[in-house]
Simulated assay, not measured.
Amino acid sequence: MPVPHRPARDMALMPAPEPSGAVATQGDIQQPRPPTSLQGLLRFCMEATKAEDAPHDSEFQAMDDERRTFLENALKALTVDVVEELQRQINILKNVEQVKADDDPTRYSDAIDKILEFIDDIDTSNDFHKIGGFMILFPCLRSPHPRIRVGGCELLAVLCQNNPYCQQVIIDNGFVSELLRIVEKDEDINVCIKALYALGGITRDNREALEQLLSHNGLEVVVNTLKRNNEKLITKATFMLSAFCRMIPELKEKMVALDCISTLISLLTLDPGLVNEHILSLLVELVDGNEKCIQQCRDAKYNLKDFIHRYMDNIKQNDEYKEQEEYCKRILHVLNAAES
């Protein structure tokens, strides 16, 4: 069934104002101009029902056939068959493998953007798979154009968000290892960020997906992204690693072996940026009930307690950093308890 067409992601619907009283002639009958926006359609409906606003003793008059037909056509113009639209964009992207490095990728990235307008709805995501949409994902991930690779990663991320059906399809078809390859080796940082975003969505609350990631050395790949010192990568990686710790607490010791603690401490700065919040949050997860993590945090070469005290002095009396202050207190509590 057609549904109202939604605006592109991250764009507000800003309909252009309709000229007041504009009319179009149809034969000998003057008709209002067809509305070109939802705002215009609303105005048309209000004008078409003015007779109903007359005094209560007036007789109700049904809309005549020509006005009814006009309104039905206007509604059709403002709706779209979602499956038909998805299929149209899939057909465009079937040729994405033919795009060369020096070709303009705009047509294909636009097709991805149009698909993204719809697939944040779970049922539509499932329909996207059922009509063959997943066939275009690997070609997008392997495109020579970063814009198309970014789009392919975002498609995967949105498809699997809180969607067990699509998560399972992704798990069963080798996308986890492909995304890890991108995170580890792609030269474009934006592609790596989107690939990490996709991996986070695939593994969220999904033990099978996480175990598949681990089987492909994914824990080391994610930890190593911290060393690239990019705030967006750090934010996504620390969020993912915190989730991994909650799902499989035994991973904490493996993260210690991968030098995760020292990497996190080295990333902390006295500048109270938001990235510190994610780093401190992961440190809290790591020291919670794990002796090896606690011992490494207590290592004198890091001087972590002194740093945290200075950091707390730097953010005190600032409500924006209350959560960071709580993380600091929890870390200090664990470290002090270990000394007593």
Score class of each variant (00 low, 15 high):
Thr238Gly: 03
Val222Ile: 15
Met240Ile: 10
Leu241Ile: 07
Asn230Gly: 02
Ala209Gly: 13
Ser262Tyr: 05
Lys236Cys: 02
Leu210Gln: 06
Thr203Glu: 04
Leu283Asp: 06
Lys292Val: 04
Leu283Glu: 02
Asp271Tyr: 12
Asn230Gln: 13
Leu268Trp: 07
Leu267Glu: 05
Leu264Tyr: 03
Lys292Trp: 02
Tyr197Trp: 14
Lys232Cys: 00
Asn217Val: 01
Pro272Gly: 04
Arg228Lys: 13
Lys236Met: 08
His278Ile: 01
Val287Lys: 02
Ile294Asn: 07
Asn229Arg: 15
Gly200Ala: 08
Ala198Gly: 10
Arg246His: 10
Val256Arg: 02
Val287Thr: 06
Gly273Val: 11
Glu253Val: 08
Thr238Leu: 04
Gly289Asn: 02
Ala257Gln: 13
Thr238Gln: 09
Lys227Asp: 09
Glu253Met: 06
Cys245Phe: 09
Leu283Ile: 15
Ala237Thr: 01
Glu291Cys: 08
Glu220Leu: 13
Thr225Val: 12
Glu285Ser: 14
Ser266Phe: 06
Leu274Ala: 12
Asn290Leu: 00
Ala198Leu: 07
Thr225Met: 10
Thr238Phe: 02
Arg207Asn: 12
Arg246Met: 09
Thr225Phe: 01
Ile261Asp: 04
Thr263Phe: 03
Gly273Asn: 13
Ile265Met: 08
Leu267Tyr: 05
Thr235Lys: 11
Ala257His: 13
Ala195Met: 09
Val221Cys: 03
